[in-house]
Design a protein around this nucleic acid. Structure first.
Length: 492
RNA sequence: GGUCUCGUGGCCGAGCGGUUAGGCAGAGGUCUGCAAAACCUUGUACAGCGGUUCAAAUCCGCUCGAGACCUCCA
């Protein structure tokens, strides 16, 4: 059997789950819209990239040769829907009295730091918009040549009306053009656009614009959507396998990407479109503008009014794995603390698994468990179901450890392989507590001395002393547990 | 207003026509000097009202409620 052939995923384009069939296996092209680096990424942004990290990791695990492209948007992005809006980078740069590229550098580094904390794999290519101005200009030229764009006063706009004569502009959101037209806001008075739905491919730079490049239409900068079309085409081709991003990008950004690519190359850019759902706080979407977001740093330290305490990156990652990527995930301290405990339980079992005793027979069907794990991931990357199966593995591990169940050497090997594969390789989790035993030799020495003293006290049934040692250690941030194999300790 | 999604036990969250989801919290028990951990047992939930069906949380309709997109945002 070939588990690879069992993978199915939900395609936004067709609104149903489809069997995954790469255009030219074993190669897979994956493009994900990355962050706009004019401010810190918040937890909601992270969720999308962590979701795609899971997808990327699973595709790799299945043996695909994946080229994962995730861009950095470091140019343009007009504020609001008016052409006279500010460039976000220029605006922020003015506010902070620095060069726009200083803004870009600072938040790009910050983004990478956060991604590393969450243990995401770096993409194969991480292209920047400013590094691909030529490609964007060339693409814009081609779209004009093909008759789908027009120039007005040094700016270039995409002609949606022309496009809709041959294509279905609203295919990704299943919307009718009439509805779109009806519900689009009235634009400002002296607008350069011919049609209400038209959007900019190239924008003429005003004197105050700091980031600007020469083009056939004069000095300016690219429109927001063209960068992704240009970069995905450059690195993955005119048609590639998977295109992903947050659901909020579906209606505008991705709709326009499809239109641009079709108008340029007459090809649909991606075979499958994947959209991740939003992170919410008290039921409302976390977003920069709503002001209900918090930064990963605040989450880790607990330094935020919404947070009762700090949460380790891996607990947060596990928290996200417990929800399907297409469902909204509501943040709460209660839910996060539940995830934290569940994660600790999982990691403890993983540790226990390395020292299990084997028997001549198994009381559990490990192969069936393994199959269920694959079935879960093959069903549109259903990590919550995967987690449920892994907790069945946890139960088995603990039961065997307690001598209540048994496992053969072969089954144990399979169990270890399965658990390690899905916990570390696929879900990208890692053990949070590296402080036990390792590293601090002095502390280890002191602890073994103290625990030996306590053991002595216990032997002569001087429980007042042994309990006092335990309480004092706990007050000092060290918790100990008496097990059959002796006393173990860890820093809290 | 238009398009669409969702409403599951104390909390988080799967399932989407018939089989135990799972985690956290709670209750009882085993183990233990005590504690912790671990294990076992336990709750019979699907917004409401109709309909289809032998059978519905799962399909259809209506009502109520929440949210998203349509405007920068992953």
């Amino acid at each position: 059997m070939n588990i690879k052939q069992e993978l199915s995923l939900y395609n936004t384009l067709t609104r149903k789950k489809e069997k995954f069939e790469p255009l030219s296996p074993p190669f897979v092209g994956l493009y994900v819209c990355g962050p706009t680096v004019y401010s810190d990424v918040h937890l909601g942004n992270c969720r999308t990239f962590i979701s795609f990290d899971l997808i990327y990791r699973y595709l790799l695990h299945l043996g695909y040769k994946v080229r994962y492209v995730r861009n950095i948007t470091d140019a343009g992005h007009l504020e609001g829907d008016r052409d006279e809006g500010d460039d976000k980078f220029a605006k922020k740069a003015r506010l902070e009295q620095v060069e726009p590229m200083e803004i870009v550098q600072r938040y790009t580094l910050g983004f990478h730091e956060v991604m590393r904390a969450f243990n995401t794999l770096p993409p194969s290519i991480e292209p920047t918009a400013t590094g691909h101005i030529c490609e964007q200009i060339e693409m814009t030229k081609k779209i004009i040549e093909n008759g789908y764009a027009y120039e007005v006063n040094g700016s270039v706009y995409f002609d949606v009306e022309k496009y809709t004569r041959e294509h279905n502009y609203g295919e990704l959101t299943n919307r009718k053009l009439e509805d779109l037209l009806e519900n689009t806001r009235e634009l400002g008075g002296q607008d350069e656009k011919k049609g209400r739905l038209d959007f900019a491919l190239w924008i003429k730079a005003k004197p105050e614009h700091l980031m600007r490049w020469p083009s056939p239409w004069g000095w300016g900068f690219p429109g927001w959507h063209i960068e992704c079309s240009a970069m995905s085409t450059k690195y993955l081709g005119e048609t590639f396998d998977l295109h992903g991003g947050g659901m909020d990008l579906q209606a505008t950004h991705h709709t326009n990407e499809i239109a641009q690519s079709r108008a340029c190359s007459h090809q649909a850019p991606a075979k499958y479109w994947l959209h991740t759902n939003m992170l919410t706080v008290n039921g409302v979407r976390m977003s920069k503008s709503a002001g209900n977001g918090f930064l990963p740093e605040e989450l880790f330290t607990g330094n935020h009014p919404l947070l009762e305490k700090g949460y380790a990156p891996m607990s947060v990652r596990f928290f996200m794995m417990q929800t399907h990527y297409r469902s909204t995930l509501d943040f709460s301290n209660e839910a996060l603390q539940a995830a934290e405990k569940g994660f600790a339980k999982l990691m403890n079992a993983v540790k226990t698994m390395t020292q299990l005793k084997t028997s001549s027979s198994s009381t559990s069907n490990i192969q069936a468990l393994t199959d269920q794990c694959y079935a879960a991931m093959n069903d549109d990357f259903n990590s919550p179901v995967l987690v449920a199966h892994l907790f069945e593995a946890v139960r088995i591990i603990n039961s065997v450890n307690d001598g209540k169940e048994s496992i053969t050497t072969e089954d144990l090997k399979l169990l270890q392989q399965t658990v390690n594969t899905f916990v570390f390789e696929v879900m990208g989790l890692k053990s949070e507590q590296e402080n036990q035993g390792t590293g601090n030799k002095a502390l280890d020495t002191v602890m073994s001395l103290i625990l030996a003293q306590r053991d002595e006290a216990k032997k002569r049934k001087d429980f007042a002393v042994s309990d006092q040692i335990r309480d004092l250690l706990l007050a000092g941030g060290i918790s100990i547990k008496d097990t059959k194999e002796g006393t173990v300790w860890q820093l809290n």
